[in-house]
Design a protein around this nucleic acid. Structure first.
Lengths: 203, 203
DNA sequence: GGAATTTAGTATCGATCGGTATGAAAAGAG
DNA sequence: CTCTTTTCATACCGATCGATACTAAATTCC
């Protein structure tokens, strides 16, 4: 009962997400949000709660609607293909939307005032989850003989995440899609390989 | 003539630098700056100008006093040693100061409001300068036969910078020095090598 | 048709933002 | 000493921050 909403909540959330993506959590004001969503300030508060709650909703949506390639990539048959696919997905995501290059998970709140600390921590934990998923996938790869027993899954996962984070920074600085791809190709040029042809992990 | 300053300008600048390092350009308020420096607001304005000018001074100081290992590393005899030394220096810088992990050049202004755009651009350009120095060093390495002619100096330089930026993000998330070092070791595990022993660049 | 309930939109809240006017205190010049 | 110049420190500026009262409009229940 009561009056019905005149705006689509998911649509407004996506518009807010894009602003956060561009300007970060603290860099985005409610003036920005009302302009981007077309929803007046009290409307956003009633629909999402305060700014922090809105940002957390944006993070959720970012994972499900923009980082969806990540869990898909984890199902590739070999660890190398997993990483290839993740790098490919990241390079495209970071450059596809010209108005918001890079990655919300990085630019959202890398550093800021003390007020933003909970949000910064939320992003840290979200990224850590991705790293855990990668590490567990590499553990499986070792069991399957896809990665050599000497491989350190934790370090490999951290390495891949490091390259991803660096790519986000470079994308925000204006790097082209092709340049990011070239970087990832080099980043992968010495992936541990049990077929032992090129790289130096003795069997 | 006139009254003499009661505070040391360089000392105040370093204190401001550290706050910017921790909270970024927009995340640092003048309240933060006055507390960190012990200098009242008008004192900072008379000594440095406005907040943007103060931050630019902080960038300069950061390069000369914290990133000084970078130009030193460039003088190492081989490209591999250059990158090793840069990675080593970064891993230490990003974790040495527990109150401000990571890198001012990244956290200073990665994303923010439109007001911060000039500062963001200044950091983008500063990082680009470092990348150019690396690329030119790798060009020299190719001429000296240290890197194979097939090596792409621009991509290699971009790759090294990407890893450095990713390291800064990870350090800000709480990564340990040892973990960063392990990541850099993997990042270097397949550096192009003309001595052709381990990695797959045919001579 | 009311009565109840929810939303839309304006107008505004106190707090904080970056940035300054102002006058007292401290130094050198004569 | 007096005069001039610069710094220090309090107090304050308009603008913007995130967040809300409040009224009118819209919808459902009875």
């Amino acid at each position: 009962m009561g009056r019905q909403r005149e705006f689509d909540v998911e649509q407004a959330l996506d518009a807010a997400l894009c602003m956060f993506w561009r300007k970060g959590y603290e860099g985005t004001s409610y003036t920005d949000l009302t302009q981007a969503t077309g929803v007046e300030r009290p409307g956003l508060y009633s629909a999402f709660g305060n700014k922090e709650a809105l940002f957390r909703r944006a993070i959720e949506r970012y994972f499900t609607h923009y980082l969806d390639y990540f869990p898909v990539a984890l199902e590739r048959p070999t660890s190398r293909e997993v990483v290839e696919e993740i790098f490919r997905g990241a390079a495209e995501l970071h450059t596809r939307h010209l108005d918001r290059p890079g990655c919300l998970g990085i630019h959202g709140a890398l550093a800021g005032s003390d007020d933003a600390e909970p949000i910064r921590q939320a992003l840290v934990e979200a990224r850590a989850k991705g790293e855990v998923m990668l590490r567990e996938r590499f553990e499986r790869a070792k069991q399957e003989g896809d990665l050599p027993p000497s491989a350190n899954s934790a370090v490999l996962a951290a390495y891949v995440m490091t390259v991803l984070h660096g790519m986000a920074v470079q994308a925000k600085a204006g790097f082209s899609h092709d340049m990011l791809v070239a970087i990832t190709e080099h980043a992968l040029s010495t992936w541990p390989d049990n077929s032992s042809l090129s790289t130096g992990n003795p069997p």
